[in-house]
Computed example of a mutant assay.
Amino acid sequence: MTAVATRHLPDAPDAPAPRRRPARVRVRVLCLLAAILVLAALMLASLAFGTRDIPLSDVWSALGGADASLGQAAASKRIPRTVLAVLIGAALGLAGAVMQGVTRNPLADPGILGVNMGASLAVVTAVAYFGLSSPIGYIWTAMAGAALAAVFVYTVGTLGRGGATPLKLALAGAATSAAFASLVTAVVLPRNDIAGGFRLWQIGGVGGASFERTGQVAPFLAAGFVICLLSARSLNSLALGDELAAGIGERVAVARAVAALGAVVLCGAATAVAGPIGFVGLVVPHTCRLLVGVDHRWLLPLAALLGASLLTAADVVGRVVARPAEVDVGIVTALVGAPFFIWIVRRQKVRAL
């Protein structure tokens, strides 16, 4: 009798779990709904505010297809820009969350790990030396460059004792990103015919967006979104550690490769159309963990929503603070993300997730 009672003692602390679980789910659902409402409000703000303010009546008319007045015409031009900002922000936020889950590295980010600069270098090289001019070609080239950069950084980060530690991956990514940035400059400087356009693109922004450009990149982004969201359960298993994940039947190498593929597709497609925008994939996943915890089934959708909100907000701020000129979103996100990066390094001690 004593043995039987002792064997059942560990179950006692878990008894209240059925009552706690619905409350936790409600909090997560409320966070998702709040994120949707915030994103909707920011999208309206993106249409209404910029180098000139537009009344909400003209915004609603423009959403209905009207462009008779000057305000309605201006709002109509801002619609594709807003849509592109939402898609690129969602892609970068989701890619950052997946990268952090794949590498178990709290510093993982498409910019910090050199993935964005790898995509940039591939596009610049293809344009300068191979005459690349097709928008679809830009996307495929950017994804190939992003994939090669990710593999290179991870390989370098695994060298030496201890394997791919978070600090080694961050240092390898930072060094690779700096090297790629120098190579981009070396490729562009002698080419005056492409230098001006690439300097603007290299900063990162969503200005000049059109539904044609968005339509070209949308299938790639959709594929990346699907792959990443379907990897949520696998990322939960990887968070337990490779040995334990394999013990519960997870094919670790396949799960890591598939999730990384989704992140690379998102990064490459986003960089091809908007340039290398940094720090969105770093800031957003950490914020999401504070709100919904570490379960990737909730973390990944929220990361996409908050990433879209952050980039949309950054675009609005960039248009408002420097009227009548604009500050590109890549600069605004860097101003927000750089202090956040320093805070993580100092407070989190660069521990693995």
Rank of each mutant, 00 (worst) to 15 (best):
S120Y: 08
V284L: 03
C228E: 07
T165K: 05
R104H: 15
A260R: 00
A223P: 01
D328S: 14
D109V: 08
A119Q: 03
L302P: 08
A149T: 01
R24H: 11
S133G: 09
L37G: 14
R21G: 02
S309Q: 05
V123I: 15
F225M: 07
A209F: 03
P219A: 03
L229T: 10
R24I: 08
L32P: 07
R351Q: 15
P16A: 12
R7I: 07
T214M: 00
L261F: 10
G163S: 04
L310M: 15
G157E: 08
A150T: 14
C31N: 05
L30W: 14
L121G: 06
L32H: 15
S120Q: 11
G157S: 15
V115M: 13
G118H: 07
A218N: 00
Q216V: 00
T333V: 11
D67V: 12
T155F: 08
A85C: 13
A142P: 01
L32T: 11
D58C: 05
T125F: 14
G247Q: 10
A334R: 04
V59K: 01
A164W: 05
S120L: 12
D14I: 09
V38P: 02
L311Y: 09
A35I: 03
V83S: 00
A222T: 03
S69M: 06
A245H: 13
F49R: 11
I227Q: 06
G160R: 13
G249V: 12
A314F: 09
N236T: 05
R21L: 13
